[in-house]
Simulated scan of single mutants.
Amino acid sequence: MLADLAGVLAEARAQGRGVAAFNVIHLEHAQALVGAAEDVGLPVVLQVSENTVRFHGALAPLAAAARVLAEAATVPVVLHLDHAVSTDLVEEALGAGFTSVMFDGSTLEDSENRAVTRAVVDRCHAAGVSVEAELGEIGGKDGVHAPGVRTRPDEAAQFARDTGVDALAVAVGSSHAMTHRTAVLDLDLIAAIAAQVPVPLVLHGSSGVPDDGIQAAVRAGMTKINIATHLNAVFTAAVRERLAADDALVDTRKYLGPARAAVRAEAARLLALVALR
């Protein structure tokens, strides 16, 4: 069933568990992720990033496929636009039936970030759509690891009040696009931010965080856990293994199928992990 991010996160936060959010790059990802959520009976967030929209050349085709899968699911599925820097793309997502958007104004000057984010929130809330924003440089989207950057609890609380966002991504030691799970999170900082910020917190760059670190972050106050690169690695490894086993293979279903199954199994494991099961 298609679900609203704010409601899914509020329930999880009240229960002291996390919700996993995974990036969708193509149809096989969406199928695997919805299947994984149904396998473990937990909600899931399907994320389509602005980078993925650029790769496909349009939002509508992938969005339509993901929405069909979400609506047919037996568990809550949030359809989320991730790391949108274009307000035009946000508007397109509203028309495509997304139930959540993440507006990324983290590279803007502070006052402009707050003003634009507030305007996005007002527009999305009028359409019944949740909004996530980011405060602090999490790093890694352009290959830059910024481990020293941290979000201040008082600034995060003020930002949430100023903008009215439903969820806030904060910088606590992770970085986007990490291929090794070596990131060390500042758990005391997570707890301090969670104590002051009235909305659920989001951990970006979770692919670089080991299992025990992810669970510790949820216990410290994180609710939405974004994982993308790790599942891309799982998918790619399965494709490589299948192709290496048969030099004559040309039917794409013969290697995309195993890759989809591998992502489904690992996503199910991560969904349970994040939910502290």
Results as ranks from 00 to 15, higher is better:
Ala233Arg: 15
Val218Thr: 05
Pro147Phe: 02
Thr236Val: 12
Gly140Phe: 06
Asp188Leu: 11
Asp142Cys: 05
Gly16Asp: 10
Gly136Pro: 03
Glu92Tyr: 10
Arg181Asn: 07
Arg240Glu: 11
Glu155Leu: 01
His180Asn: 12
Val165Gln: 06
Gly213Lys: 05
Gly148Cys: 04
Tyr255His: 11
Val44Thr: 12
Thr74Leu: 12
Val218Met: 05
Ser130Gly: 02
Val129Phe: 00
Ala233Lys: 15
Asp188Gln: 14
Pro43Phe: 01
Pro153Cys: 09
Ala177Ile: 04
Pro210Ile: 06
Phe103Gly: 02
Pro198Ile: 06
Leu271Met: 07
Gly18Arg: 04
Ala237Pro: 00
Asp122Trp: 07
Glu266Val: 13
Leu273Thr: 03
Glu91Arg: 15
Asp251Phe: 08
Ala21Cys: 14
Ser207Lys: 12
Thr182Gln: 12
Arg181Ser: 09
Lys254Cys: 11
Gly173Cys: 02
Asp154Pro: 00
Ala238Met: 09
Glu112Ala: 14
Val209Cys: 09
Leu81His: 09
Val44Pro: 05
Ala267His: 09
Ala259Cys: 03
Gly18Ile: 03
Phe98Cys: 03
Gly173Met: 01
Ala233Met: 15
Glu109Val: 11
Ala167Ser: 11
Ala233Tyr: 10
Ala36Met: 09
Asp212Ser: 13
Ala267Glu: 10
Asp110Met: 11
Arg260Lys: 10
Asn23Asp: 09
Glu134Phe: 07
Phe103Arg: 05
Gln215Asp: 08
Asp110Trp: 13
Asp166Tyr: 07
Thr107His: 10
Val101Ile: 12
Leu168Tyr: 06
Val184Ala: 11
Ala12Arg: 01
Gly105Gln: 04
Val77Ser: 01
Arg152Leu: 04
Ala96Gly: 07
Ser100Ala: 05
Val184Asp: 03
Ala220Asp: 06
Ala36Val: 06
Glu71Pro: 01
Asp142Trp: 15
Ala12Val: 02
Ala60Lys: 09
Ala275Gly: 00
Ala70Arg: 04
Val78Ile: 13
Ala191Ser: 13
Ala96Trp: 10
